[in-house]
Design a protein around this nucleic acid. Structure first.
Lengths: 226, 226
DNA sequence: AAATAGAATTGACCGCGATCAAGTTTTCCT
DNA sequence: AGGAAAACTTGATCGCGGTCAATTCTATTT
């Protein structure tokens, strides 16, 4: 299922960790990368697997999640085009802790450990980009962990909605990028509670549900004040 | 309070991200690093501060914590000698989200952004070490976040104790490295609950409290089965 | 378009763990 | 060493949010 053609041009040229390089260097990277496609629901890797590739999303999206001992699923994050995963197995030779599942038809590029290490030595600026990305991710994950223990479920839901909004929106309408059950898992609660809390927020006139996946933010300030 | 002497020899030579280099290269790094000492309770940096140094703990320890909107404190992790912090501000030019406070008399070394970037370009293997460390930290933080939402407080406490034990212990006695209130914050609960749960675990004959900070693990397996 | 399965909503219940309060112990400072 | 200030423990209370169950709604498949 590997193809070495057109597919992964964009994989290299679109991606933050490579797109600052010049054309010739990008070509060199394309040589070493391989493409792979997944149907919705297929796993790119699973916990316990040893793997030594960095996986970069080219098209589509991946759901990264973990299972607890009890079998409960926790959504860690969603990878969109340009984002990557696999760094733990890659830099530490440890097994994956996460599952990576295609949420839709998705194509990825993969670079092996030895190829990537050679690239990092040859083009140190790539390391800087990856360091940037990883340090951002550490921060996001620590923020998320802090929210779990210091904020109520209602506050986490409200924060999530406001985060979706971003600073630049005229309409104030957000589109939920996740099924409610995944949203629930991401913010550390259950689908039932998400339903109830959304209803409450609507009764408080803080939001208005437009359709199942569209929500209008009526009062951003008070959402954050809960 | 900066001194450029003996102090930070160990800062470079002891630290995983540098100690694979040869003597001459380490000398070069020592030139660029500066040392600083803090008394117990002093802040190395605080949230909101812009800073462009990487801070490496040389001696002592730092408490990294965050404050939520409501002012509640969340312990993120403890830095021990050889560990570093500041990467978010350093690689992303963002403000600190954490507070870093000396838990005891502590000395650190600091390297500025521009000096570090030069080093990373010159000695790409340093990047690999830092990537290793950061990817481990992403994993730990995601594990922690998963535990908050999928495990009970009792389970988190039990896991914490077992983690302290490590694989190699004859006596099965662990020493709590943190005050109970920090422990509570770290595992996402309150001091009151930690007290109560430790008591319960003792009544179940899973642990035995030796002194305020020493606990004997009586039944590791069942601690993890809760 | 019908059929079937998964997703979402709503209701009833209840247990975990936070909070408040009071008392005890440990640590820190001079 | 002695006193003040934290830290810790224990008890009583209560509310948030998880679980279970029953519909309803929405997709996906043929």
């Amino acid at each position: 299922m590997t193809n070495k053609n057109h597919e992964h041009k964009s994989c290299v040229s679109l991606v933050p960790i490579f797109n600052h390089l010049d054309a010739e260097q990008m070509n060199e990277i394309m040589e070493t990368a391989s493409s792979q496609s997944f149907k919705k629901g297929e796993l790119v890797y699973h916990a316990g697997e040893t793997s030594d590739v960095l996986t970069i999303v080219n098209k589509g999206s991946l759901r990264l999640y973990r299972l607890s001992e009890s079998g409960k699923e926790q959504l860690v994050r969603v990878l969109r085009p340009g984002e990557f995963t696999g760094e733990l197995a890659l830099f530490n030779e440890k097994v994956h802790e996460n599952y990576a599942e295609a949420m839709e038809p998705t194509s990825v590029c993969q670079i092996t450990r030895s190829d990537l290490q050679a690239l990092l030595i040859k083009y140190p600026s790539i390391s800087l980009k990856i360091l940037q990305e990883l340090s951002t991710r550490v921060d996001q994950s620590e923020t998320q962990a802090t929210r779990f223990t210091t904020e109520s479920t209602e506050q986490r839901l409200a924060s999530y909605l406001v985060d979706l909004l971003g600073p630049d929106s005229q309409t104030n309408i957000v589109t939920l990028p996740l099924a409610k059950k995944d949203l629930a898992s991401y913010i550390g609660t259950t689908p039932e509670t998400v339903s109830r809390k959304l209803k409450e927020l609507e009764e408080m006139n803080l939001i208005k549900r437009i359709s199942s996946s569209k929500i209008k933010i009526l009062d951003e300030d008070n959402l954050l004040f809960l």
